[in-house]
């Protein structure tokens, strides 16, 4: 297996763990708060899911930098200043900062869950979409709009699902 294939496989595994983890974190969180009490078993499921998401993030970052090195070593340095790449880097930084804000309880949960879910799906879309025709700013505006749209959808589901 050559380096590029290894990086692609690692990047896909990282993204899959992250996107899957973020999705199941949301599902488990909704199920956990449905009766108003997070039981030890539910808490344990959530902790495990967050650990999987963190593993995905580490794999994503390491393999992502592996790609950047590959561009540098293959003389394709121009790709390192690509707007879509920097939008993806910004979104990964949001994911990292969001985890810190959740831990110190400085982020409202409606925004934290939306940021996590939207950021992971955005990273997936930006990674899979070749030749994105949008600039850094356009992508980030779309991302911010998506964060609030997802927050609205999640809150609507929560209101319908969680017992009063």
């Amino acid at each position: 297996m050559d380096w590029e294939t290894l990086l692609i496989v690692t990047h896909i595994i990282g993204t899959t763990l992250g996107v899957g983890g973020a999705t199941f974190a949301e599902v488990f969180y909704l199920k956990a708060i449905r009766d108003g009490v997070v039981s030890p078993v539910e808490g344990d499921f959530l902790k495990t899911t967050y650990a999987i998401m963190r593993t995905g993030l580490v794999l994503l970052v390491l393999s992502g930098f592996g790609f950047l090195l590959l561009y540098r070593l293959n003389g394709a340095e121009a790709l390192l200043l690509n707007g879509a790449l920097w939008a993806k880097l910004t979104i990964v930084l949001v994911l990292v900062a969001n985890a810190v804000m959740i831990q110190i309880r400085k982020m409202p949960m409606w925004l934290a869950t939306s940021l996590s879910l939207t950021s992971w799906y955005a990273a997936l879309v930006l990674g899979a979409w070749r030749g994105i025709p949008y600039s850094f700013l356009e992508i980030l505006i779309g991302y911010v709009v998506a964060v609030f749209a997802v927050a609205y959808i999640l809150e609507t589901i929560k209101k319908a699902y969680v017992k009063k």
Partner: peptide, 16 residues
């Protein structure tokens, strides 16, 4: 993080 991001820009500038 700043150091890592600066490294990407520096490497990118080498190809311009």
């Amino acid at each position: 993080t700043f150091i890592a991001l600066a490294g990407i820009v520096i490497s990118g500038a080498a190809g311009q």
